[in-house]
Amino acid sequence: MLGSIGLKRLIGLAVAGLMAALAATAHAGSEWVTEGSRAEGLDSCVIDDTEKMRRNHMDYLVHQRDDVVRRGGRGSQYKLAECVNCHTAEDAAGHAIPIDDEGQFCASCHNYMAVNVNCFQCHRKVPEEE
């Protein structure tokens, strides 16, 4: 009996801990824009409705990538490079922080959702200096 009480308590603790963790991450997740990025000063995503972007960015990007690479069509407004330009923050020294770094724009949400971002194994992670 003692054991089962112990077990119950343990489960209770675990659940409470999970809730706390969930609440904390949910809070973190609500800061959708990276501090210090150009996007922070804007009301919504400049390319498309923010909410649509949040939901459909992967489809837009996949469509755009096939269009660009296979067809050579460069007209799409959805460009990964533009995401990077707008959503990267700078460190204290004024250097851009890679967008897929822990806690940065892409990583913060993708890590939370446990969805792997493949893009930046090949794509540039910081804005290109003009």
Binding site: D43, S44, I47, D48, T50, G73, G75
Partner: peptide, 23 residues
């Protein structure tokens, strides 16, 4: 304001000369 005008401006600036109809 945001979804129509801004990207319109942005695309016309960034995409100057870009081919939309592909190779």
């Amino acid at each position: 304001g945001a979804a129509v005008v801004a990207p319109g401006v942005l695309v016309s600036v960034a995409g100057a000369g870009a081919k939309t109809d592909g190779a």
